[in-house]
Design a binder for these strands. Structure first.
Length: 290
DNA sequence: ATGATTTGACCGAC
DNA sequence: GTCGGTCAAATCAT
């Protein structure tokens, strides 16, 4: 924290790459925000804008996944058998790398947007020692239904409250509908103009997080939470007569992750998208994806 | 009613 | 003993 050199990236080059992509995404999102008002009635511009945002967001996800860190052999299946902690005491005493797993590579990036195209569920928040801001812990929404072990930690940067330090741990093995929404959106975007984009980047200030109760600064961080929720609240449909912010809520609100896309695209398209967009570009671990 | 978030406690690595 | 990561009951939002 000391120097401005920021500890942004743990894994030098790859990390830098992620960071750059994150920047691009942020900038694109910001641009989208700025233009949102202007192009509200212009579906064509909106569509193009959507493509940019989606692509950048997708790139971000892709980069993340391909980085060494994103490949963490995944610590230990937390097991669904974790009924009671107490019980687990005896049981998992075995070998779980609960914390400070230096051995586990992680990707740390700085971003002004919490939106990375994935859907996360917050499972904890903790005040960290040398930090003024709490750290939020997220895991993939599909951890249980699809066994996805992706996790991430989000914390405000000390030097720049508008920036978040996101540490990714684990790799997405799920076919996340939200991710899909992101990707799918792009897919759609590629084909037509009915795209689904996220202006998540509004980043800093408001994460569009539906104000829950209070909004203390801490809350903002808590609202990182918004990732999943808020991220949901940040979906906008473009390419249509105009953006329909109102739409988003109901659609996403329902089920932060799952319903998001289900109501817009179908699973089939999702598969196509993943296959065409990711499969070809990256050497995805097909096995994992299924 | 269902699912997500909050929050305090537990657990294990330093 | 301390600190960070995770769990899970309680609470909230939709």
């Amino acid at each position: 924290m000391a120097s401005s050199t920021t500890t942004e990236v743990e894994s030098s080059v790859p990390g830098a790459l992620v960071q750059e992509v994150a920047k691009i995404r942020d900038s694109a999102a910001r641009l989208g925000e700025l233009l949102a008002a202007e192009v509200a009635g212009n579906s064509t511009v909106g569509a193009v804008l959507g493509e940019i945002l989606q692509s950048s967001s997708r790139a971000f996800s892709l980069v993340n996944w391909t980085l060494p860190g994103g490949d963490i052999g995944s610590p230990s299946p937390r097991e669904a058998s974790s009924k009671k902690r107490r019980a687990s005491t005896a049981v998992d005493g075995g070998g779980r790398c609960r914390k400070r797993s230096n051995s586990c590579a992680k990707n740390t990036v700085k971003s002004k947007s919490l939106d990375d195209g994935q859907t996360w569920r917050k499972y904890g928040q903790k005040q960290i020692q040398n930090s003024d801001h709490p750290r939020s812990y997220f895991r993939c929404t599909h951890k249980y239904d699809q066994g996805c072990e992706a996790r991430r930690q989000v914390q405000r940067a000390e030097d720049d409250p508008n920036t978040f330090i996101i540490t990714y741990d684990g790799k997405h093995t799920c076919r996340d509908p939200a991710m899909a929404s992101d990707g799918m959106a792009s897919a759609s975007g590629f084909r037509e103009n009915a795209c689904l984009i996220r202006f998540g980047a509004s980043s800093s200030a408001s994460f569009g997080a539906p104000p829950k109760q209070e909004s203390t600064e801490e809350d903002v961080v808590s609202n990182l939470t918004t990732t999943s929720t808020s991220s949901s609240s940040e979906y906008y449909r473009l390419g249509l007569p105009a953006m329909v912010p109102a739409d988003e809520k109901p659609a996403l609100g329902a089920t932060a992750a799952g319903d998001v896309t289900s109501g817009i695209h179908d699973d089939l398209e999702l598969e196509l998208l993943i296959d065409s967009c990711f499969g070809g570009i990256l050497g995805f671990d097909d096995g994992r994806f299924y």
